[in-house]
Structure formats: structure tokens, C-alpha cells
């Protein structure tokens, strides 16, 4: 083992320079031509910067709500609830979310509430809703913002991102982008 100690130390040092150093610096260099220079993709609105991939908490009635989050959309401490599916406390939480939703959106049929709206995401930062999760909130938004329902519905449809190449994965709606578009619509 002694004879392999010196080569091992030297090899470790030079490999750290290559793999921790050179490899990362080259990718960092290439990232300078990527969107926002590799600092995370952003959307601008009213002169403010937002990260389009990082979900935000939306709880006010005038906005499309985002999904529940176990970490309250803390982007410096991501995580899920890690609740097991039959945990009684957890099921009470879900029931409470359903009840809250029905209070804020009277007239919605319970069996139409999509499960994504009452369950917490894995990261606690989910930027998306399913199309159904956005569409079911249309009547509330229209009522609170005094907009025609079909106009709000059209806005949601315009913001649906289709599956990759139209073939792979689920369709989704970015909640932040949808709410920015909604604010713009209200200003008109």
C-alpha cells in the first residue's frame, strides 16, 4: 500500500485540477452564450426580474394559485412534504385544501378539482400547473378581476405549453408567466 501512496496523491491532485477545475471552467465559459449567461432563465416584467423556472407562491384570489408547497416556495431550501399516502394527518391537510378551494371558488364541482392543486410538489418550487389546474380557476379570476370568462379562458389556452415535440410528457402551464399575462390583460 505504501508504494501506491505517492502516485495516488499526485494523481488525485492533478485529477481535481482537471475535473473540478478545467471541466467546470469550460462549461462555465460556454454558459456565457446561454440564456441569461447561465445564471438561470428569467422573465422581465415592470422592470423586475423573475426566474421563470422557479415557482412562486400565489395565494391571492386575483391570481392563479400555484400548487401547495411543503417549504412555502423557499428557493433557498427546496423539498417535499414526504408524507406517506395514507398518513391521517396528511389526508386531513388535503381535505382542508379542498375545502378552502371550494370556499374561494363557489360553484365549482368538487369532482372537477384536479389532484395537483391540493397536493404539494417534490421540490416545493413547482413552477407549473396542469391545464386543468389553471382552467378550473378561470371563473374566480374572471369574477375578481371583472373580466369576461371566455377572455381569461383564452389567456390560459394561449399559455399552455404542449408536450415536448407534441409527443413526450404532460402539457403544463407556467403559473408565473400566466399571472404576468393576466396582469397585463387587466391593465388594458
Amino acid at each position: 500500500m505504501k508504494s501506491s501512496l505517492i502516485p495516488a496523491v499526485r494523481l488525485t491532485i492533478v485529477l481535481i485540477l482537471l475535473l473540478s477545475g478545467v471541466y467546470n471552467l469550460v462549461i462555465f465559459g460556454i454558459a456565457q452564450i446561454a440564456p441569461n449567461h447561465g445564471k438561470g432563465e428569467i422573465v422581465m416584467y415592470n422592470g423586475k426580474v423573475y426566474y421563470s423556472n422557479i415557482g412562486q407562491s400565489f395565494t391571492e384570489d386575483k391570481y392563479f394559485w400555484s400548487r401547495p408547497s411543503a417549504v412555502n416556495y423557499n428557493a433557498a431550501g427546496s423539498g417535499g412534504s414526504n408524507m406517506s399516502p395514507f398518513n391521517k394527518d396528511y389526508l386531513k391537510t388535503v381535505q382542508a385544501r379542498i375545502d378552502t378551494f371550494l370556499v374561494h371558488d363557489p360553484g365549482i364541482k368538487k369532482q372537477d378539482i384536479p389532484v395537483g392543486l391540493v397536493t404539494a410538489s417534490g421540490s416545493g418550487l413547482d413552477p407549473d400547473l396542469s391545464p386543468a389546474g389553471a382552467l378550473i380557476q378561470v371563473p374566480r379570476i374572471a369574477r375578481v378581476r371583472h373580466l369576461p370568462e371566455n377572455q381569461v379562458r383564452a389567456l390560459v389556452h394561449a399559455n399552455i405549453q404542449r408536450p415536448l415535440f407534441g409527443l413526450f410528457g404532460p402539457a403544463k402551464v407556467n403559473v408565473l408567466k400566466l399571472n404576468i399575462a393576466l396582469d397585463k390583460l387587466s391593465l388594458k
Partner: peptide, 26 residues
């Protein structure tokens, strides 16, 4: 198929067991 305990609450669980999952992956 989703969580039967949540389906029993009478909501739409067609998206599956979404606790701890991200919408963009499904």
C-alpha cells in the same frame, strides 16, 4: 392510478399520485 384515499374525497385524481411530484414530469 393515484392515491385511493384521496380519490375517496371525491376530487379528480386522473393525474395520478401527485404528492411529491412535479407537473412537468407527471
Amino acid at each position: 392510478k393515484g392515491n385511493p384515499a384521496i380519490a375517496a374525497m371525491g376530487i379528480n385524481t386522473s393525474a395520478g399520485n401527485m404528492e411529491g411530484k412535479e407537473v412537468r414530469f407527471g
